[in-house]
């Protein structure tokens, strides 16, 4: 046990956890799922990426330099944006900048609202708070943005006949796209709303589990978790709304004509 009551996991025990994957792999082989290679690669990546993260964070927490924190956040944001753009293959060109802008605005406003107003960290860039919180904000807004953008452009394509009829009746881009925008934003926000409703009854949220395992008092961990869940909802909502409102026009020409998938060119 470490001084604060946490049972430390030894290196041999950490390797032992790979046994879970051996069982899963054996099952996959037995049923013929064809997932053995994917499982192996994913397991190795889990070890390597998370251990690397631990090493990097230990260093970042120790040096406590503002520019290191900012650089790390910038890197995380760019990676998250690339994932979003890749997940919306039907989207028009030029999606990277609106997605990046939405991510940056969301990450800055939500992260620093939490660290400055709620947790009240004495130093604005305190890495021990800023980085994990920004990570959760980015991760969740990334999922929300990716879901809503994917839904936005697939629904616009599905409604192309109706959109042509609306445009022919004199509708502008917003009037033609509105129904799809609504649907896309609902799609992006519903998973978060569901997980808020189920938290504490159906599952103990991940962050709280981590804190409790690391020795925190359950009630204190709960307070953090409540803040985190509300923060995640805000991040998902702000990020999705910004991204959708900034990108739906890209499926239209300046004259308000909807460009079907074949005319839009690949996402870049």
């Amino acid at each position: 046990m470490t001084p604060n009551g946490v049972v430390a996991i030894g290196w041999p025990q950490l390797l032992l956890a790979a046994g879970f994957m051996l069982i899963t792999g054996a099952l996959s082989l037995a049923i013929g799922l064809g997932l053995v290679k994917d499982l192996a690669v994913a397991s190795v990546r889990t070890y390597v990426q998370l251990l690397a993260l631990g090493v990097v964070l230990r260093w970042v927490f120790a040096v406590r330099l503002w520019w290191v924190v900012v650089l790390l956040l910038g890197f995380m944001t760019v990676v998250a944006t690339r994932i979003v753009v890749k997940r919306a293959p039907d989207a028009p060109r030029g999606l990277f900048s609106p997605a990046l802008f939405s991510m940056v605005v969301t990450a800055i406003t939500v992260t620093f609202a939490v660290t400055a107003l709620i947790v009240r960290v004495p130093v604005w860039y305190e890495p021990r708070y800023v980085i994990p919180i920004a990570g959760m904000v980015l991760g969740n807004s990334m999922t929300g943005i990716a879901l809503s953008l994917e839904r936005l452009f697939s629904d616009l394509d599905a409604r192309s006949g109706e959109i042509l009829a609306l445009t022919a009746l004199g509708a502008d881009r917003w009037e033609a796209a509105r129904a799809s925008v609504r649907l896309a934003l609902r799609a992006g926000l519903i998973p978060t709303i569901n997980s808020m409703a189920a938290a504490g009854i159906v599952f103990i949220p991940g962050m709280m589990t981590g804190q409790v395992l690391a020795g925190a008092d359950p009630l204190e961990a709960t307070k953090y978790q409540i803040v985190v869940m509300l923060m995640i909802s805000a991040a998902t909502a702000i990020g999705s709304i910004l991204a959708v409102m900034l990108s739906y026009r890209r499926a239209f020409t300046a004259e308000g004509v909807f460009l079907e998938k074949g005319l839009r060119g690949p996402a870049a």
Binding site: G161, A165, L166, T167, A168, L169, G170, E255
Partner: peptide, 28 residues
Amino acid sequence: PSAWRTEVALLPQRTALSGGTVESNLLL
């Protein structure tokens, strides 16, 4: 362009009414 389309009106080949009632479509 949108003002032009209110005067030069196109009825596309595929009938594409919006979801809702006959009245809501006529008023759209």
